[in-house]
């Protein structure tokens, strides 16, 4: 807790209040765990592990403390929306095919999963194997050299010696990690991997997320009523309210359904700002696939104007059983409603 307080910024009074609140929480949690049968030592360790890494929690507090500045940026964007009907029309006219297209800035290009590697299958039979041996076996079976970021697992209390039990036949690398995650029974834990030049990189999903952040500018002018023929009769004031409502709804849906816990407002790392008819989203690649889809749903609000429903030319996400939302549009596009 002392370490955490050192990481915190802001007035001393606020830091002490946070410390007091967290200590109170930990005390009660330890008491409850002990009532549940844990020894005091184990209960204390569990409660502290649940709190997470001190620096990370302090950063979340810092985000909460400074968030009015971000909100101001967004509100300025909304004012821009209200006053910028003409400008938005211009944007719409100059970007006829790109209303819901996205220009992407990629600080780093992550490698896609290797199809040849994904197709390779192997048996696993671990009773009390160490995690390092399990990773070595997976790497060897997929003919890859494993490189593990052990530091990424520290917050979970996981190390190379952590015991693993797993029994399955003919699994792919992806299935191996799915089984590992299902068997881990650590709250929030998610082992993940990337294949890069015959190397099997192993870390957490959060680790790869941070590495694969993309700042994407979405053109959301098609979401706004100025482009809706059925709403052209609106007064400027009505239009302003409608603009704000639609933008808030869009942001609300994204932060509610696209990996909700990862957004800054919900204690996560990633954020977005609306400026005029542009929505800037800084988030990992896996988020953007879903965000594109959500924006498309907003564009398709029963309006018959073809212009506002211009489809994205970007590749839609591939359906996976674990991610039905992400997969919905692609699945429908390929084999859904016949013409």
């Amino acid at each position: 807790m002392t370490v955490m307080t050192k990481f915190l910024r802001g007035p001393q009074r606020d830091k002490l209040a946070i410390r007091e609140e967290l200590e109170s929480h930990l005390e009660e949690r330890v008491r409850d765990l002990m009532v549940g049968g844990q020894s005091e030592t184990v209960a204390a360790r569990t409660a502290i592990a649940e709190l997470g890494e001190a620096a990370e929690v302090a950063r979340r507090f810092e985000d909460a403390r400074t968030q009015p500045r971000r909100r101001l940026a967004m509100n300025l964007g909304l004012i821009g929306l209200a006053g910028g009907a003409m400008i938005m029309s211009l944007v719409a006219m100059t970007q006829p095919g790109g209303r819901n297209g996205a220009s992407v800035y990629r600080p780093e290009r992550p490698d896609a999963k290797d199809a040849a590697v994904e197709g390779r299958r192997f048996d696993v039979s671990f009773t009390n194997e160490s995690l390092v041996d399990a990773f070595s076996w997976a790497g060897q079976s997929a003919e890859l050299t494993p490189v593990v970021s052990w530091k990424a697992f520290e917050a979970w209390g996981v190390s190379a010696d952590t015991q693993v039990a797993m029994n399955a036949k003919q699994v792919t690398l992806e299935q191996f990690f799915t089984l590992l995650n299902e068997g881990a029974a650590i709250e929030g834990a998610r082992y993940d991997y990337r294949v890069r030049e015959r190397t099997l990189e192993i870390a957490t999903t959060e680790y790869f997320d941070k590495r694969e952040i993309e700042l994407v500018c979405y053109d959301i002018s098609g979401v706004l009523p100025v482009h809706r023929p059925d709403l052209e009769a609106m007064t400027p004031v009505e239009m302003k309210h409608r603009d704000q409502q639609l933008t808030e709804e869009l942001v609300g849906v994204i932060t509610s359904f696209v990996y909700p816990e990862t957004w800054r407002d919900n204690g996560g790392l990633y954020g977005m700002s609306v400026v005029g008819s542009k929505m800037f989203v800084e988030a990992p690649r896996r988020h953007h696939h879903q965000i594109r889809w959500v924006i498309e749903q907003f564009l398709d609000r029963g309006d018959s104007g073809a212009a506002s429903t211009a489809p994205s030319t970007e590749e839609l996400p591939v359906a996976t059983p674990r991610d039905p939302v992400k997969g919905a549009p692609a699945g429908t596009a390929a084999g859904g409603r016949g013409r």
């Binding site: 929690v57 507090f61 985000d63 909460a64 968030q67 204690g267």
Partner: peptide, 14 residues
């Protein structure tokens, strides 16, 4: 979890 809850509460209060 507390690591998410308390920063969230601080933000919501703000």
């Amino acid at each position: 979890g507390p690591g998410v809850l308390y920063p969230l509460l601080a933000g919501m209060e703000k």
